[in-house]
Nucleic acid binder design. Sequence first.
DNA 1: ATCACGACCTGGAGGC
DNA 2: TGCCTCCAGGTCGTGA
Length: 275
Amino acid sequence: MPELPEVETVRRTLAPAIGAVVASAWDSGMGLHVHRKPPRKKLRALVGATITGVRRHGKYLLVDLDRDRTLLVHLGMTGRLLIAAPAAPRAKHTHLVLELRDGRSLRFVDARRFGQLDVIEREREREHPALAELGPDPLTHGIDVAALHRRARARTTTLKAFVLDQRVLAGVGNIYASEALWRAKLRPTTRSNKLTAAQAARLADAIHEVLRHALDHGGTSLRDFVDAAGTEGENADYLWVYGRAGEPCSRCGTRIRRIVLQGRATYFCPTCQTP
DNA sequence: ATCACGACCTGGAGGC
DNA sequence: TGCCTCCAGGTCGTGA
């Protein structure tokens, strides 16, 4: 579900929560993200704190509060971070509720529990294991083509896996990896060490364009994704290859193919994405 | 160190 | 209606 454009859409729609004060904290106690339980004690320390802003790095949301505290949220595959109206019924699979003094609440709902929650000290956030190794965010920092090329040359993995590596660029996921490679006319199975400088420039441009375009359409909602207000994104209508196996490539008419790379569905055009 | 795989979960879709 | 299998926007731990 949530890649950079979706998470950024959530970030923007969380703006109405800024200035609200946390009245109480509740968590489900269930394990999230490979047995890690919600940090109950640290969540309780948020009671009385004011939400001062919401940032994002790659697919991670950083809800800033005063007292030097930041709520770290990763949506995993099915996670939703919602601003709920007063007295709204608690949805199934709700794992965190921060009641706000004005009656609304901030809720984290995640059916598959692949999401992550933590409370960290803002001063030391770069030391957090989830954030420590993240590469630059393509939309907020831009993409350094020379650095991208250098990194690609040093690896032998597929371009698809390279683009998905959050240490290289933070925020590209399975949908936009396929989309960007199609746009750059590069085959997902090509080894990254074969990337030329010109191709690296094309790839950087394609990644930026694909993410920007998706963000402009409120993200891609295939099944679960909604913003903080519960609204779906429109970008699913604009995908070039993802989920379109058997349909004609919009550039050359060849049937789009689906393959599996490292266990993930990968879509490409066998004609115009050169090996 | 790098690479590719399986595990972690629930639910929806489609076949019978 | 039910049961079964397959699939899903992510990340992490393992063993080669």
